[in-house]
């Protein structure tokens, strides 16, 4: 692909320059301009049905705390492409709960791993374990001009944890469905 691109580019530029050279014999300069717009693209890649399922189960013995079990073993990866302007600040990825609410007494934590994969550039760094609520909270910061590579195994893997913060507020309330939204943002 690179070879074809090189040949095509060289031929194209040769044609342009030959025409200019024949028309303007006293000129030998070529002005080439191109623009690269700022890019902010992000996606969540996953194996499975794209839904993370947790369940509160009784402890093994009377008196023990409930056990929070993740029912499905899935991998979630954040991929992104970012091209920044010369003076633009680094970007972050924020996470928030939308389209539903966390059951009372529980807390949701998300931890992104540090970058790994086939990308290049100034990829971001994990903030570590972050408590996520309805307000956006950064989970990855310091993203410059970079791309992570596409698909599972590229970018930052996401790990999820449910903690019981207020046992007395936990209620047998059945199934709670909500959405985790991620945004690649400019600050």
């Amino acid at each position: 692909m690179k070879i074809i691109t090189t040949i095509l580019a060289t031929l194209l530029m040769s044609l342009v320059l030959c025409q200019q050279a024949s028309a303007q014999l006293d000129e030998e300069t070529v002005h080439i301009g191109f623009s690269l717009p700022e890019v902010a693209l992000m996606d969540v890649e996953y194996i499975g049905n794209g839904t993370i399922e947790f369940e509160l189960s009784p402890s093994a013995e009377s008196g023990g705390s409930p056990v929070v079990r993740q029912l499905t073993s899935q991998e979630f990866w954040i991929n992104y492409s970012s091209a920044l302007g010369k003076f633009s600040p680094d970007r972050s990825i924020v996470a928030q709960i939308s389209g539903g609410t966390l059951p009372e007494g529980l807390e949701l934590y998300i931890q992104a791993t540090d970058y790994s994969g086939n990308g290049e550039g100034k990829t971001g760094a994990s903030v570590g374990k972050v408590k996520v609520g309805s307000d956006p909270r950064p989970i990855i910061t310091g993203i410059g001009s970079a791309y992570t590579g596409n698909g599972i195994g590229n970018g930052h893997q996401l790990n999820f944890e449910i903690d019981i913060s207020q046992m007395e507020k936990v209620s047998a309330s059945g199934a709670h469905d909500f959405t985790i939204m991620y945004t690649l943002t400019d600050n």
Binding site: E38, L41, M42, T51, Y80, S81, L106, G119, N150, T179
Partner: peptide, 27 residues
């Protein structure tokens, strides 16, 4: 390369959000 679901082909090059579902069951 950096985008799943074909986002990388977008001429606008602006799609900075993504989401997935989470379910918690309490009995």
């Amino acid at each position: 390369n950096g985008n799943g679901n074909g986002n990388g082909n977008s001429p606008a090059q602006e799609d900075p959000t993504a989401a997935h579902a989470l379910n918690i069951s309490i009995s």
